[in-house]
Simulated scan of single mutants.
Amino acid sequence: MAAPGQSTRPVLVCGEVRTSLLPSFQALDGRAAAQLLRLRADEHVRVSERPNLYVLSPEVLTGVDCRLPTANGARVRAVGTVAARAALTEGRVLQATAYFSAPATGPDLRRPWGQYLVRPGLVEPFGKLPEQAIAQGVLRGAGRGELDLGMIAEGLLAQLLRHPLLDHKAPFKSRRTHLRWTARRAPAGEGPALTRFTLAEDGLRTMELRLPEDVPAAAAASLCEDLALHDWLLTTVVHLLDNSRLGAADGPSAVLALRPAVDHLLHLWMPRAHVDRSLGHLWDELEQEPGFTRQWRSLVQRIRDQLAVQTIPLLHQALSTR
């Protein structure tokens, strides 16, 4: 058996965030959003109205007994619970996250389920945990018979999308994105660090972190949700611009194509609004490269310039018909 106490200190946290447009013609207000995200009757939904409307569900647990993803093909069985939660920003952007923590070593024999349930979100390996192989395996994606965080997050999204509050009349078309992330323990005396962020095909993003032992897994999840939200905003506005046929479409068509960005998205850009203070500075690295806010400001200015250019002829036409 692992030494007492040793097996419960996480050295690795892994998660996946799915981000999508809420399929509702009207954005949900705080009360409706809280109703949507009431996943458990015994815990309250968190509602924050400053600096923007942000609603966070209580966590729900999924019991697992399966192999963990590994990059080297090693077969590592683990037992425990995966935590999942949902968030809604400004009643418009819906996110579902699934994540777990894992200790350096686990027991040689399976414990009774009750002992796993008292450590929510903790998955214990049998024996020693190959941290790097599992971190890389999670980022690569689960294989058959392996723990699939994306499937758990997607299942939570599917549950929410069946809610009768939703009319499934989204104001514009958009694509989902998914962010896979890992956080390994930082060396003693070092602070949090974002070591790698990548954009892959089909809406996949990956992020690797180094975090001190005292940073809760939920705080890491909040950081990754914030990054996933703003990456989705960038991706969606870029697609709206690409589909607007600027320079080729006539004035009214271009204005109509860009209107969803103005009505529903431009006011949502608030990095770090709901990130733990100890991790907020990691956004500075993303601002340096790839330069999230710099790209966002460029897109916003481009939209405003195009709307101004397209509106001037329409004003002249309206005045000339009087």
Rank of each mutant, 00 (worst) to 15 (best):
R175H: 11
G191F: 04
G203N: 08
R162H: 14
D214C: 09
G121A: 12
R9L: 14
S253T: 15
E90W: 01
L157I: 13
Q288M: 05
Q6M: 07
T81D: 06
N52E: 14
L256Y: 06
T321W: 07
V262I: 15
G127W: 05
D226F: 12
H239P: 08
A153V: 02
G291S: 12
L28F: 01
P103C: 06
T70F: 07
S101C: 07
P4S: 10
E131V: 13
D250L: 00
S320V: 04
P58W: 05
A170S: 14
L299E: 06
A249K: 06
E208Q: 11
S101K: 13
R67V: 11
D29T: 07
L117A: 14
L94H: 01
A153D: 02
V238F: 10
E49A: 10
F197S: 01
A104I: 03
H264A: 09
L21C: 12
P187C: 09
A32L: 11
V255S: 15
Y99Q: 08
Q301E: 15
V13F: 03
L266H: 05
T182Y: 07
Q136D: 15
R67P: 00
A257C: 10
P171R: 08
A221K: 07
H264C: 14
G137E: 10
L28K: 02
H267G: 13
T182F: 05
L129K: 03
C14T: 07
P187A: 02
G141V: 05
A254H: 00
G291Q: 03
A318D: 09
N52K: 09
A186F: 11
R38N: 06
K128D: 10
R322S: 04
S244V: 00
A249V: 09
P10E: 05
A74N: 05
E131C: 10
A186Q: 12
V138F: 14
A170G: 03
V300G: 09
P23D: 03
G137N: 06
H281F: 11
M1V: 11
A3M: 14
A218G: 08
A142W: 01
I312P: 04
R322N: 08
G73L: 06
E59T: 14
V237R: 09
M270T: 14
E154L: 12
A83T: 13
A86S: 09
A218C: 05
Q136W: 09
R18V: 15
A74P: 02
Q288F: 07
G121Q: 05
L28T: 01
M151A: 15
S278H: 11
P58H: 06
K173W: 10
I312Y: 15
